[in-house]
């Protein structure tokens, strides 16, 4: 852990402000909500995201866990869909692979521009909005789920069918 600048009081304060802004300001178009799971632990949040319109994800509601480091916002948080989502940029265990959640230092996929990485001025809101747009437009350059990426590239109709099916399953229809 980075001992130099880690200061959990700063992190806590910032998280509380973000939470307040999300609750009182509301998300754009009401596409998502996010907040701590319990008041005793402000470093674990849950987000509920609506599937964007005009995509196979439309109509679904997806839950994701956000895990914040103690030196937030210097380091990004981690985001994991639970249950996992069938999507090219989401690992089969549900972890989201998106450049905005990677620090400029580490580059698991070796292609990302530093300009689209995490920076302390990013926020939960901005990241979730990026994830929503990622749902609509998968990025095939960094496939986290190779199965899904192949399907998306080769057989779009089948991909959409499987996504819809998984959503129906999730909703218990």
């Amino acid at each position: 852990m980075n001992s130099r600048s880690a200061n959990s009081a700063t992190a806590l304060r910032r998280l509380m402000t973000e939470y307040r802004q999300l609750t009182s300001g509301g998300s754009p178009d009401g596409m998502f909500t996010a907040g701590p799971i319990s008041e005793s632990d402000f470093f674990t949040w849950e987000a509920l995201i609506c599937g964007p319109k005009d995509t196979p994800f439309e109509g679904g509601v997806f839950a994701a866990k956000l895990a914040f480091p103690t030196d937030y916002p210097l380091s990004p948080f981690k985001m994991k869909f639970d249950p996992p989502l069938f999507h090219p940029n989401i690992y089969p265990d549900g972890t989201v692979c998106i450049s905005i959640l990677h620090t400029p230092g580490d580059d698991p996929t070796m292609y990302e521009q530093a300009s689209e990485r995490w920076s302390p001025v990013q926020s939960v809101e901005k990241v979730i909005l990026s994830v929503i747009s990622m749902l609509a437009e998968p990025n095939l350059e960094s496939p986290a789920s190779v199965d899904c990426s192949k399907l998306y590239r080769d057989d779009r109709a089948e991909y959409e069918r499987r996504v819809r099916e998984s959503i129906r399953e999730q909703l218990g229809l």
Binding site: N2, R4, N7, L74, P104, G105, A114
Partner: peptide, 17 residues
């Protein structure tokens, strides 16, 4: 200063990089 001393930050302006 916290950002600058953070080894992973690459010393870029957090806003415009």
């Amino acid at each position: 200063r916290g950002v600058i001393s953070d080894p992973s930050s690459k010393s870029q302006c957090p806003t415009c990089r």
